[in-house]
Design a protein around this nucleic acid. Structure first.
Lengths: 343, 343
DNA sequence: CGTCGGTACTGAACCGCTTAACCGCCAACT
DNA sequence: AGTTGGCGGTTAAGCGGTTCAGTACCGACG
C-alpha cells in the first residue's frame, strides 16, 4: 500500500496539489468552501505530511535536540534528566508537532559533534543546552553554525552570544539553606558540589561561601564530584573523618545526599542528630528515604517546559530573551535538625 | 552561507552529482581514483547528507522511536528508562548514523498515536516497544501499518505477530529470590509488583506463586502498583499491618523497595532483622542506600543495546528472531537476613 | 577492421511538498 | 465598453539526494 501524498488528496478533492498545500497550511488562495473540502478529504483519507518533504522545502524538520552528557553510571540514577525530559515533552505535546531527538554523549566533544551533525543533516531545528560551563564552547559553536539554541543555566557575563537562557537564582537557594542551618545552630557547614566546570557549580560555590560568611558559619571549601553517589559518599566520609567535622552538609543533587546518608550511618554518625543533610534537587527520592531528605526544591520539569517553549519561539523566528524562573526554595524534612551540642 | 549539497562537491571534484552519490554510498560505477577524489573533497568541504533528501528518496529516515508511557511522577525517579536509553544510545552510537526519537505519552492511546504519526510522517524507520501487555494492541497495530518494531519482553503466546522480542527468563530470577529467602528460613513471603496489565508482571506473579509452592513457603497474592514509591510503601504498610505479616518481600523495582524500607522503619520493623527486602532492577540506588538492597540484577542497558541492535537489523531488511538474554540473578546485600524466630 | 562487452561516468526523472509565477474569470470603476 | 484588480485557482520549478537509462570510451576478439 503506497504512501498517501497530497497528490492523492488533490485528486480526491478535485483540485491541484498546490491548492491542497495552501489549504492545509492555512494560507490564502483558496476559497473557504474548497479549503473545507480539502481538509475534510485529507482527514478522511488519514493523510499526514511527510516530514522529509517538508524539511526539504527549506521548512522545519519538526524536531529539537537534546544531548545528555554525563557518565553512564550517573545517568542511570540521576533523576534530573528524566524530569527535565518530562517537562520538555509536556510542552512539545501541546500541539507543536515537534519531536525530541535525544543523544547520550560520552564527553563534551561528542556533544559538540552531535550538534554539528544534527544541524548539518538538518535533523533538528534547534537544540537545548544543559549544564552551561564557564566559557562554554557550545555557545560560540551554535552561534557560528547558526543553530538556534536555548540554554538551561545562568546567562554568562557576555550575555550568552544571543543564546537565551532559562535560569533561576541558585544563589538564593543556597543562601536559604545556609541561613536555615545557621538558625538551627550549625557553625560548621560543608558543601558537596557537582563538577567545577559547570557554571552553576561555581555560582553556587560563591553563594555558599558568601552566605556562610554572612551568617557567621565556618564553611569548608566546596568538594567537587561527578554527581555520582559513590563520589558523594566518599566526599562525605572525608569530611566526617577530618578535623573540624561539619555538622551539616549541603549537596548539589539528591543521589549524593542519599548515598551520604548511608556513609554517615556506617561511620556511626546519626542523621539528623549529629549531622544535618540538605539534598539538591528534591526529586521523589528525598520524600521516599528515611529520614526524609530536606532539599532545595527546584521545579525541574517546569524548567524543561520553559526551555522548550523558548526554543519553539526562537525557531519560529521570534525574539527571545533570557527566561528567569523562581529561585529554589528550601523544603525542610527530617534530615536536618538543630546542631548537636559541643562534644 | 548556503547549505553544501552534492552539487557543490560534484563541481569541486569535476564530476556529476550521480557519480558523487555512487562514490559516497560505496556503490560500483566509479573508478577507485575518482571515488577517492570525491570522498576527499566531500571531507574537505565538510559535506553532510541532508537526512530529509535521503528520506524523501524512499530511503531511511535514520531514526528510531521510543515511547515512554508511565505516569510523570514515576518517570522522574524510575531509573529503568534512563538505563535503557543509555544502552540503546550505546548501540546507535556505534556508527549507525541513527538517531533516537523520544516521546513521553500520557496513556496507551497516546503511545499508539505516536507510532501512527511517526510512521505516517516517516519520522522513524522503526520503534522499540516497552512493557508488553497481555494481548498488547501495539503488536497488531505495528503489524497492520507495517512499522518495523522490536519489543522488550517475553514473546506472547501467538509468537508476537512477527515482532521480535528481547526477553529474559524473569521467572528464573523470581525463583532464585524465593529460593534464597526460603533457604534463609523465611516461611511467609510477599510480592509487590508492577501493574497487572503488563505481561511480565503476570509472568512473574505466576513464577512467584509456583516458586513459593515449590519451596514450601506461604505466599500472599501479589500486590499490584503503578511502580511508584508511594504505592510501594503503601502496599508494604498493608502487608506489615495485616495478619500473617510476611518476613520477606520481593519488589518489582528499586524505588518501591527503597520507599518500603522507610515505611518499615516508621512502623518499627527492622530491616533486615525482622523483614527482608529484595529489590527489582538493581540500579545504583540499591548499592547506595543503607542497608544496601539485595536485588534481582538485570542488565537493563544491555537489553536496550540488544533491542536497538535487533531493530537496526530489522530495518535493514534482515530476518530477526526473538533475542533471549541471560535471566536476572540475585545479588544478595544487607537487606536480606535469616528469618526472625517466632515472635 | 568492425563489433562486442564492460567500465566509468553523465543526464534526467523522481521522491512529496512548498511557493513563485501565471492565468482565467468576474465585478467594479472610469 | 475597456481597463483594472482581486480572487481562486493551476503550473512548474525547486529542495537535495538516489537511481535508472544512456553514452562515450577502450581493450579484446573474431
Amino acid at each position: 500500500m503506497r504512501r498517501l501524498t497530497i497528490a492523492d488528496i488533490a485528486a480526491a478533492a478535485g483540485v491541484s496539489t498546490g491548492a491542497v498545500s495552501y489549504a492545509l497550511n492555512g494560507r490564502p488562495g483558496v476559497s473557504p468552501a474548497t479549503r473545507e473540502r480539502i481538509l475534510r478529504t485529507a482527514r478522511e483519507l488519514g493523510w499526514r505530511p511527510s516530514t522529509a518533504a517538508r524539511a526539504l522545502t527549506g521548512g522545519r524538520s519538526g524536531a529539537i535536540g537534546l544531548v545528555v552528557d554525563r557518565p553512564a553510571h550517573v545517568l542511570g540514577v540521576e533523576p534530573f534528566f528524566m524530569r527535565l525530559i518530562s517537562g520538555i515533552e509536556a510542552r512539545l505535546a501541546e500541539g507543536s508537532g515537534t519531536a525530541l531527538l535525544l543523544q547520550v554523549a560520552a564527553d563534551p566533544e561528542g556533544e559538540m559533534a552531535a550538534y554539528t551533525d544534527w544541524w548539518a543533516e538538518r535533523r533538528v531545528d534547534g537544540v537545548l543546552l544543559v549544564d552551561l560551563r564557564a566559557d562554554d564552547p557550545r555557545l560560540p559553536l551554535v552561534r557560528r553554525i547558526g543553530l538556534p539554541a536555548v540554554a538551561l543555566g545562568y546567562p554568562p557575563a557576555d550575555g550568552g552570544s544571543g543564546v537565551p537562557c532559562v535560569w533561576d537564582d541558585e544563589g538564593a537557594g543556597i543562601r536559604e539553606a545556609v541561613g536555615y542551618l545557621a538558625a538551627l545552630g550549625h557553625r560548621r557547614v560543608a558543601r558537596v558540589a557537582g563538577p567545577a566546570v559547570f557554571a552553576h557549580t561555581v555560582r553556587r560555590d560563591a553563594a555558599f561561601t558568601a552566605a556562610a560568611a554572612a551568617f557567621g558559619v565556618a564553611a569548608a571549601p566546596p568538594v567537587h564530584t561527578d554527581y555520582s553517589g559513590e563520589e558523594g559518599a566518599r566526599a562525605t566520609r572525608r569530611l566526617l573523618a577530618g578535623a573540624d567535622r561539619p555538622t551539616a552538609i549541603v549537596y548539589d543533587n539528591d543521589i549524593m545526599a542519599l548515598a551520604s546518608m548511608g556513609a554517615a550511618g556506617e561511620m556511626g554518625v546519626d542523621v539528623p542528630a549529629e549531622l544535618s543533610l540538605v539534598a539538591g534537587d528534591d526529586s521523589a527520592i528525598c520524600r521516599l528515604t528515611r529520614p526524609a531528605l530536606t532539599a532545595l526544591t527546584r521545579d525541574v520539569p517546569e524548567h524543561g517546559r520553559l526551555a522548550a517553549s523558548a526554543l519553539l519561539r526562537l525557531v519560529a523566528g521570534e525574539e527571545v530573551g533570557h527566561v528567569p524562573t523562581p529561585p529554589p526554595v528550601l523544603t525542610p524534612r527530617a534530615s536536618t535538625a538543630p546542631a548537636p551540642g559541643p562534644r
